[in-house]
Design a protein around this nucleic acid. Sequence first.
RNA 1: GGCGGC
DNA 2: GCCGCCAACATA
Length: 450
Amino acid sequence: MEIVRSQRKPSIDASPTPTLSLYRSAPPLEVRLEDFELYAIDRLRVLKGISDGLARGKKPEEMENLVRELWKTNMRHQDPAEVMNKDIISHFVLRLVYCRTEELRKWFLSMETTLFRYRFRLESLESQRMLMTEFQLPYKALIHAEYETVKDKLVQVARSIGQSSNTDTIFFKVPFEEVPDLVGSRRVFILKGFAYVPMNQVVSLVVTQFRSNISKALVLTNRKWTSTIKEQEKDRLTPIVEALSNSYLGPDYTQYFSQPNESAEISLKDIDQLASNSFPLCMRHLFDKLREDHHLKHGGRIQLNLFLKGVGLKLDDALAFWKEEFSKKVGAERFDKEYAYSIRHNYGKEGKRTDYTPFACQKIISSTPSVGDHHGCPYRHFSEENLRAALNKMGVGGRQQDEVMDKVRNRHYQLACTLTFEAIHGTSCDTGINHPNQYFSNSQKIRQEK
RNA sequence: GGCGGC
DNA sequence: GCCGCCAACATA
Ligand code: SF4
């Protein structure tokens, strides 16, 4: 394989074949029972080390060193042939230990994922490619000759999104339909059906895959454990697993993460207040319709739910909130069956556990609500008549309303929204509105000052 | 809402 | 008919 240019600072391990496992299949069974526990403890030291490295807010480079050191000191083995096994065995044993509860899964997933990220980066380019192929991401690195022909374009794209366009960044060619989000937000150069994705982005694709797999596997493991494994292994693995649970997952695993607490949480009580005070029109409308119809169609649910998440509504409150309304229409049991999962999923609590970012104005404005939908941007999707009525309800009338409508006619929807904001709050908003949650937090800030 | 499984 | 899983991306 030809490579663009010799890439990185010499990595500790430049071997062509991966030293890193993806843990796709259960471990080969040739292991002494004592080793199960010993291996698992060693790995736990690594994960624990990563955990408080993160808790101390270490920077990426510091983490890279930390991970390398932790791995080297804890996961070595006199028999080089055994080292790979140790990796795999220890991982699978810990899966059993950490699949029991939501909290444990979350911690384990997070640590394993960061561990994987740094280990992946230390692999040689060739073994990285092999790992990617194993993940069905068989992308090819850009060869030198081709790189030269598109170099200018690549630099241009990098610059347009404020990335330092390093000359020795490696690019991969990815079928563009496989990375719709990168394509949609124009963060990659596209040519002949291929998106040219820089190394760092590719790494996050791989890591996302990894995280997704482990997350789902943990849930499965949990089921299998309680249904069959626990009983079946009661003379072998079960005692070990139980011992590990008791000794190592002591008290302090609750506050491992670096952002101790997000900004203001909000409670169910004042949500109606907040809605009428600080929600932008799009969200206000969804909110009102939900309260009125006790129902929202799919597009509206996701738009509002993510917004509420961004506003600081905790998952349990969100579930209670939606359930309260939906129950009036479809009944509580149908809510649990048909709508609850998706709400948890939006909060990153199901499946691959993505904590989705709330929709930005651009996304909302370019959506295409059909009849019966209430999502979208009112400035863009309402009739003039309805919009004026909505503005009146927000307390924007007369001259100010006309100015808003003027922006709308010129298709400057976000400016119209900004004008509305200014009219309501009586201050200027120089940055403009480009995200509903920005509207909200700006509004809150101003209101608190009064 | 789409995709997927039975 | 039952069920699981996905999407996003501002930001001082
Ligand atoms: S401009 Fe943005 S925030 Fe304002 S209503 Fe439209 S989508 Fe909502």
